[in-house]
């Protein structure tokens, strides 16, 4: 059964969600749909070894990348 995660753009950077899909792409079958103010990620056919942790790890990765991007944006030219 596929897992679906909604990443709202006010909290998650859509570019970073896309980057997370690319980073985890070899471990499962990902589909990414850009909606109105949110990205819907559906994860299916997860490799057996990563079944228990992949969805949560993916969400963690996307969040961390989004926070880092948010801080860089806030810092502007200083970084």
């Amino acid at each position: 059964m596929p897992n679906s995660l909604v990443f709202v753009h006010s909290l998650y950077d859509p570019a970073e969600v896309k980057g997370a899909v690319e980073a985890f792409g070899h471990l499962a079958n990902f589909s990414l749909e850009e909606g109105d103010g949110e990205s819907l990620v559906t994860i299916d056919e997860i490799q057996k070894d990563y079944k228990d942790i992949l969805v949560d790890s993916f969400a963690n990765y996307a969040l961390e990348a989004s926070i880092v991007a948010n801080r860089k944006e806030a810092a502007g030219d200083l970084l």
């Binding site: 995660l5 909604v6 709202v8 006010s10 909290l11 998650y12 949560d56 790890s57 969400a59 963690n60 969040l63 961390e64 926070i67 948010n70 801080r71 806030a74």
Partner: peptide
């Protein structure tokens, strides 16, 4: 503030799995 939630979430990413949603406007 969202920045404070981000700062906290960033620290907790090391400890556990964190997932943020927006149930309604003005809520995290």
């Amino acid at each position: 503030k969202k920045d404070a939630v981000f700062g906290t979430a960033y620290l907790f990413i090391e400890k556990c799995y964190v997932y943020l949603t927006q149930p309604e406007d003005g809520q995290i």
